[in-house]
């Protein structure tokens, strides 16, 4: 399976390419959910590598939720909104993420808004 191979890949470009081919294989095997999730991952990796250069800290390969938390911790609420839209994060999860993150950084004003 390409998914396993992709993790052995040393370079990000290689991994993305392999994951893209995994998406194709999943589609052929009619595994729609897996294909979608893999597609999301390719998208996420690309965005993460963008953040990595922008923020100068390692972001690649952390989960989507952790990425969102990172953005909130940086109080980058606009970017967070965009990500939420891109990955269709459900209300309930977003609420949880906001509560935990705002509590963590002690942003009581934002917390109250919820």
């Amino acid at each position: 399976l390409s998914v396993k191979d992709s993790y052995r890949a040393q370079k990000l470009e290689n991994r993305s390419a392999m994951l893209t081919s995994a998406v194709k294989q999943y589609r052929q095997a009619k595994a729609e959910i897996a294909a979608c999730l893999t597609e999301d991952q390719v998208k996420l990796l690309k965005i993460q590598s963008g953040y990595e250069t922008k923020f100068g800290c390692p972001v690649i390969d952390v989960s989507l939720n952790d990425t969102l938390k990172l953005l909130m911790r940086r109080r980058d609420l606009k970017e967070t909104e965009e990500m939420v839209k891109k990955f269709k994060v459900p209300e309930r999860r977003l609420w949880w993420l906001k509560v935990t993150t705002f509590a963590e950084i002690g942003d009581w004003i934002e917390l109250e808004k919820l």
Partner: peptide
């Protein structure tokens, strides 16, 4: 199908793509 898909997405998004396998 809808329920399974939802769980899978939640898990991958929360714990990371490495749990696919």
């Amino acid at each position: 199908p809808r329920v399974l898909e939802h769980y899978k997405r939640e898990i991958i998004h929360a714990y990371g793509f490495q749990h696919m396998i």
